[in-house]
Design a protein around this nucleic acid. Structure first.
Lengths: 316, 316
DNA sequence: TCCAACCATTGATAATTATCTATGGATTGT
DNA sequence: ACAATCCATAGATAATTATCAATGGTTGGA
């Protein structure tokens, strides 16, 4: 049998002929003329090299080989049919996979979107990549992921951003801090204290420093720490003060408080970013749509800042 | 996805590309140029309608859809490969089916060939059709079976016959018959007795009557019975005499004996018949070959009359 | 930064396939 | 025995497919 001469069209016609048992009948059903079907069968017969059917009382009856071929054809056609469905569900974003790279701070908030999304679309695999800002930026440049989450979005080429969440940066202190109860504290009162800061390049640190600059201030003393956790523990144990995203502070942690400092909190936002120079997987697109629709219920009305519609239009 | 634009060639190329991860490499392996393979992939992509792969570090990596397609392609190709094997075994006569129509007398001898054949080729299905001579002749005329077994072969158009077995017709009587011990009995001494005969058209009857005619004799009294069993029981219970194939007489039956009549037994033979105007299935051909080779060991050297080689050459 | 390797596209050609109409031969049913 | 039905084949044409050589754009590594 020479498989290279087989066509899917051939299989379709053959299956139909075996099912109807009549060449003329199949021709009608397939909107072809009878000779066309005859010829298809002839070609199939020649490709296979063995007789596939006999005519008995003008009925097309498959031989052993023909019957086996019929089975295989059916299975094959149905496989490709299933594949078609599969493609459909990929297109609809109900299946597939995508990856999100995010700076570590985002890991406190993104699960509240990803959880409900996963429940709704269990066949979508999601890969989470977490790193500091520098690492995530590199991933973006190399286009290693479908989506990126930043606060203070990079103004890079090919970046397409959509704001989705308020990210207030508050000034936190240990609960025992002398100014803990005071209101509208001038920042000057805190300048002598030690501040715990994330590494250079961290969005929180950038925003804080930019705030300081705007107000013409400089810190007296600072310590650099690699993670928000370390900073949080540091603050609650009295090492110093810090500026942290409100989302990082667990509601039930009594050992740490936000100070009511003038011109605080610093306002910033979280953004979804995608590259506009490459095709976004339907699954990722589906996730953005989901986020756009369920933002408030997942993240809370007071935090949501939904600019995702613009991002979605830009990507479609 | 438009399945009608798919070719098996396309699938083969695609599978190879996914396996090697390189278009150029596949081109080499398939003895094609690189643009040819690129073009095939392009066509496949267009037929499917979704991206199937991405280039990562110059490596072809399947997308979700591409991977699923790859699996289906592999399965399909391997199915057709198996089918090829299957065709081979049909060709070799190791698989398939055929039918034999035989006159009822033949059922005493054919199983001794069919048994060993089935053991040797368990994947071959055999259908046995048993009837009287008239019925089997009709089946032959309508070409309903692959092989036919007759004694006294019909001289019909399109019939191709091969003798394979001696079929002596003996004159039998009850063990208590007065002439049971006598030798070389003249037939005239038996003419007055009642004879049990098969129906008109039965080969045994035809041969017996032809024998009578040759010797210018006529029976005084006869009774027609529908089966060899009925005749045998009839003879052993003293209803009369009969002419029966030796193969019909069980060796251990003491109640019935062959008389030593002059010019008896009448010599006749069994024949395999096939139509030479239609294709004989490989399985049937395989059976004839088997019979030709194992005739003596299955049916006994003293009975075998092997002219099957001629039949086989006439059919191939 | 430049070269080599890789993939994509273009333009061209030969082969194959899909399909029709018209016709002939075989089978079936009346 | 004849008409109807069915399948096969021939001849013709348009569409599609298979394949190549040449060339251009990307990417990764030296």
């Amino acid at each position: 049998m020479n498989i290279r001469h087989l066509t899917f069209r051939l299989l379709q016609v053959y299956v139909d002929v075996i099912q109807t048992g009549s060449i003329s009948e199949s021709a009608k059903r397939l909107h072809l003329t009878q000779p066309t079907v005859s010829l298809q069968l002839k070609r199939l017969r020649e490709a296979v090299g063995d007789p596939l059917y006999t005519l008995e009382h003008n009925q097309v009856v498959a031989t052993d080989a023909g019957l086996e071929l019929y089975r295989i054809c059916q299975q094959t056609l149905s496989n490709f049919n299933d594949f078609n469905q599969y493609l459909g569900s990929i297109q609809a974003g109900q299946r597939g996979h995508f990856s999100i790279a995010m700076v570590s701070t985002a890991q406190y908030i993104l699960p509240r979107l990803l959880g409900p999304f996963s429940q709704r679309f269990p066949a979508v695999d999601i890969k989470l990549e977490i790193g500091n800002r520098e690492q995530v930026l590199r991933r973006f440049e190399q286009g290693q992921d479908d989506l990126y989450v930043f606060s203070h979005p990079p103004s890079l080429e090919h970046a397409c951003a959509g704001r989705f969440l308020l990210n207030p940066l508050t000034l936190v202190a240990p609960a025992s801090h002398p100014l803990a109860q005071q209101q509208n504290i001038p920042f000057a009162d805190l300048m002598k204290q030690r501040f715990l800061l994330r590494e250079q390049g961290s969005a929180t640190r950038m925003l804080f420093e930019s705030w300081l600059q705007t107000h013409g201030l400089t810190l007296a003393s600072s310590v650099q720490m690699a993670s928000n956790e370390a900073i949080r523990v540091g603050v609650s144990s009295g090492m110093g003060l810090a500026v942290l995203s409100s989302h990082v502070l667990p509601a039930h942690d009594q050992s740490i408080v936000a100070l009511d400092v003038a011109d605080f909190p610093i306002e910033s936002h979280w953004y979804f970013i995608a590259r506009n120079d490459r095709h976004l997987s339907p699954a990722a697109l589906g996730f953005l749509r989901f986020a756009q629709q369920h933002l408030e219920e997942c993240l809370g009305k007071q935090w949501a800042r939904n600019d995702l519609q613009r991002l979605l239009s830009a990507l479609s």
